[in-house]
Nucleic acid binder design. Structure first.
Length: 883
DNA sequence: TGGGACACGC
DNA sequence: GACGTACGTGTCCCAC
């Protein structure tokens, strides 16, 4: 019993070597094959958890096969020295991991593995053979499966007899015959000339073995083929012999000798440090100490503050040289005001400064605020903010790696600088998580560690900007970057600095009301339930509703009964407790997230909330907001909407102005799809949901019932957000079939939309990505997946992203332009928030008419579409009143 | 500490 | 017919 893993060392090392770029450590040692091998071993140990393990290697050049055939492996290229140098390292690694490796003169790894798998089979040990060599398939059986590496290195295809049958319609043993007939160029096994895989399989179906084929040559169809077979009888038999794995190698040990032991972690760590396998150190879960940090990475040279350094850099400032700038702050908290240090790099020299030194250096302060002194950064908004809190100004940012990386691939936009660096071959930067630890393990490391870390960042930024810039140009994303994202980051910084004033008293007062009501509801719920329990616990609530009160179970989750709002709504007629619970949930959310949550983040001095807008997280190009999220303040239900009464202008007598795009996504859809019906509807300024209902239900305007309009609205919603028929059926509480019919009807009326959807999917499949009107991309790696669900999801994304993403582009353009106009005209009014299709301002009353027009026009003119863009403006004393 | 369930907005 | 279904953020619970 137990599990045995046998690894074909040469084959895997080869795969890793060719699959990975030629990595070296600082001593110039080649490490890529070892790195890939180590990755695979770690994966095997973690996922397969073998009880026995062996890595087999080929020994020397001459094997017993050469006795039969001198040219065996004759045409194979000599192993490159870059790879052969890595074999001793591999063996060292295996020793440290306490994994047995074995090689024997005259035999190949295949034979050793064949021999062991044979005896494992007798003992009924489940065996896995890990290799890149298809020959090994001949060893498959009920107990033995072959893990064949795919194109990458850690991905495998798993083969047992069944899978081999599915793929080749052959038994494992016939794989040998297959090789005998078709040969193998990589081993220089000749086979029968003119016989390839297809012919060989056909022949084997008919005659089972090479011998069978040769005995029945006359029955073979095809004159040429007959001749070839007759001419090459000997060669076919020899080829079969060469391809047969020998299972009687005198290995001289037992399977029990292969028991997996505890690795010598200290030794492994030392090896990994030497070879600079930093991510693997993490994956092994080995504590990363300061001690090994030093050895891990090539140190980036840097200088510290001194008179001489100052004058050297003052010269560079004066000449407006291109300089990379990094200001380190608490990477976990966005608006932390503490500066850990600043570093500059011009690609050759780095300088590190403490906050005190920054303050003392006046030329630096001037340089930072000089818009004509070009600076390259990573996350400029963050740097601008932390500098701002420390009385510095930042201008002149001409490249921001965070943004460049985001528009190149939004899927990993928010990445750590270290990860971006690694993707571009710079391994000398540690992740912040490793330097500082995360969560509770967070520590401030030694000053030297921080100094080097920050200086490295500046150096890396300097090195990476040109590389990413090239790609930006290649993808034609200059406009998106320089006209939108980069200037937008300045606008967002301003919004974050402004903050929104909160009427703390009003919020606290609402909190008291909610609390009162919650207490009352809690008592009533306990009364109706017959006992006290935690209403906030879905588990306990489920027990009360479905076990104690025996209400019908509508839906289950992985962990038990579902108690979500849509389930509870269906249960409402059954028991008076349900309504109370729904209300309790609603108030509980309001109290904890919106009253307590917001009060917690009000700046005690200014009474303002400074959210942080993230410009590099969403897949579609939208912004997001955190600490706190001000993009999800309640509006739908009146009770929650009142929260908005606490959002007020920061100057007395000022007003809140809210400007929201009307149906921006559907207008964008009309433009992109060129659907005439939809375009006309917007030109005529119709109520789009009523219009949709009229067309879908084939009724006149006055015949549209509120149900019809609601359903039409849901269909439009579905189109915009790319939901499926299932999603629509859930929204409308109808069957999936009915939902599907709605969608079909919609497409028949808006046939241009239908065409667009078909075309965009086709395009996505071809290019692998979709784009917005401003060339923002989203890659869809799953678009050609063989799995229906995964593929469908990617297809809906393909349909939806250009719509949502273009809408995001539009409002971003409007924001940048409005901010510019406010600045150019020296207006007092300020942009406070963006909520996807809505902008919120606080407005000086003397500017109110001006702002109304300026905002409305700028937003409506942000992009020229085939349909007009429409903006509604509302004004009030609070955000609540601006509706 | 981390994942699941739930709920809020667009 | 498949099998789980816009995105992102925050809070609470509960097993670890």
């Amino acid at each position: 019993m137990g599990k045995l893993v046998l690894i074909d060392g040469n084959s895997i090392a080869n795969r890793a070597f060719y699959a990975l770029p030629l990595l070296t450590n600082k001593e110039g040692l080649y490490t890529n094959a070892v790195y890939g091998f180590a990755q695979i071993i770690i994966k095997i140990v973690k996922e397969i958890k073998p009880d026995y393990m062996l890595v087999a290697f080929d020994a020397g050049k001459v094997t017993f096969r050469h006795t039969d055939y001198q040219d065996y492996k004759g045409k194979r290229k000599k192993t490159p020295s870059e790879l052969s140098s890595q074999f001793p390292m591999l063996k060292k690694l295996l020793d440290a991991l306490q994994i047995k490796h074995f090689e024997l003169e005259e035999y190949e790894a295949d034979d050793i593995i064949g021999t062991i798998s044979k005896s494992a089979e007798i003992r009924e040990i489940e065996t896995i053979i890990y290799t890149g060599d298809k020959d090994m398939l001949q060893l498959a059986s009920d107990k033995v499966s072959i893990f064949l590496t795919r194109r990458g290195i850690t991905e495998v295809d798993i083969f047992g007899p069944k899978e081999i049958m599915d793929k080749y319609q052959l038994t494992p043993k016939q794989i040998i015959d297959l090789k005998g007939l078709m040969g193998d160029t990589s081993d220089n096994i000749p086979g029968v000339p003119g016989v390839g895989e297809k012919t060989a399989i056909k022949l084997l179906h008919q005659f089972e073995t090479v011998e069978g084929v040769l005995e029945n040559i006359e029955k073979v169809s095809g004159k040429k083929l007959k001749e070839k077979l007759a001419e090459n009888k000997e060669q076919a038999l020899l080829s079969k012999k060469l391809a047969t794995i020998f299972k009687e190698v005198p290995i001289g040990f037992e399977i029990d000798d292969l028991k997996v032991k505890e690795p010598d972690l200290e030794e492994v760590k030392q090896l990994f440090i030497n070879w600079e396998f930093n991510t693997l150190i993490e994956r092994l879960g080995i504590e990363s100490t300061e001690n090994n940090l030093e050895k891990d990475y090539e140190k980036i040279d840097y200088q510290t503050y001194s008179k001489e350094i100052k004058s050297v850099w003052n010269e560079k400032f004066h000449k407006k040289e291109q300089i990379a700038l990094h200001v380190e702050t608490n990477y976990e908290k966005t608006h932390d005001k503490e500066i850990y240090g600043l570093a500059l790099s011009d690609g050759e020299e780095q300088v590190y400064l403490t906050l005190e030194e920054m303050i003392a250096w006046t030329e630096l302060k001037e340089w930072l605020s000089d818009p004509t002194a070009p600076k390259w950064v990573y996350d400029g908004k963050r740097i601008e903010m932390v500098l701002y809190w420390n009385n510095f100004k930042l201008n002149g940012v001409t490249a921001d790696l965070l943004l460049s990386n985001y528009i190149l691939n939004p899927a990993d936009g928010g990445n750590d600088l270290a990860k971006i660096a690694k993707e571009h071959g710079y391994n000398d930067l540690q992740a912040d998580d490793i330097i500082y630890g995360k969560g509770a393990k967070k520590v401030i490391p030694d000053p030297e560690v921080i100094m080097e870390h920050i200086s490295s960042k500046a150096y890396i930024i300097y090195s990476l900007v040109p590389m990413l810039n090239n790609k930006i140009v290649e993808n034609k994303m200059e406009k998106l970057l320089y006209d939108i994202e980069l200037p937008l980051s300045r606008v967002l910084a301003k919004m974050e600095k402004n903050g929104v004033l909160i009427d703390v008293n009003r919020l606290e007062q609402m909190g008291d009301e909610f609390n009162q009501k919650l207490k009352g509801l809690t008592d009533e719920i306990y009364e109706l339930a017959g006992r006290e329990f935690n209403i906030n616990s879905p588990k306990q609530l489920g027990e009360i509703l479905f076990d104690k009160l025996q209400l019908p179970v509508i839906k289950k989750t992985k962990t038990g009964y579902s108690t979500s709002a849509d389930v509870l709504e269906k249960l409402e007629p059954y028991h008076p407790i349900i309504g109370k619970i729904l209300h309790y949930r609603q108030l509980g959310k309001l109290y904890s997230t919106y009253v307590e949550g917001l009060l917690k983040v009000v700046d005690p001095e200014t009474h303002k909330i400074h959210t942080s807008f993230n410009q590099a997280v969403t897949a579609t190009g939208r912004l997001s907001s955190t600490d706190p999220n001000l993009q999800n303040i309640p509006i739908r239900l009146e009770e929650g909407r009142k929260i908005r009464q606490a959002f007020i202008p920061s100057e007395s007598e000022w007003l809140i102005l809210s400007a929201d795009y009307s149906q921006i996504e559907l207008r964008v859809l009309a433009h992109i799809s060129e659907d005439e019906n939809l375009i006309q509807a917007f030109i005529d300024d119709l109520d789009i949901h009523t219009k949709t209902a009229m067309d879908v239900f084939n009724v006149s305007e006055h015949e549209v019932t509120s149900l019809m309009r609601r359903q039409a609205k849901a269909v439009n919603f579905g189109i915009v957000y790319g939901i499926s028929d299932y999603g629509l059926s859930q929204n409308l509480n109808i069957s999936r079939k009915e939902a599907g019919e709605f969608i079909d009807k919609y497409f028949s009326v808006f046939s241009g939309v239908k065409n667009y959807m078909t075309e965009i999917i086709k395009q996505a499949k071809k290019k692998g990505y979709v784009s917005t009107l401003l060339n923002r991309r989203r890659y869809l790696p799953d678009i050609n997946s063989s799995n229906y669900n995964i593929r469908s999801f990617a297809e809906r994304t393909a349909m939806n992203t250009p719509i949502q993403g273009t809408a995001a582009d539009i409002i971003k353009i409007a924001m940048v332009r409005i901010a510019n106009k406010i600045e150019d005209r020296n207006l007092n009014s300020r942009l406070l928030l963006q909520v996807h299709d809505e902008l919120i301002f606080e407005v000086d009353p003397i500017e109110i008419d001006l702002m109304k027009t300026l905002v409305k026009e700028t937003m409506e003119e942000a992009m020229d579409l085939k349909v007009p863009l429409k903006v509604d403006i509302n004004i009030g004393k609070t955000w609540y009143e601006a509706k």
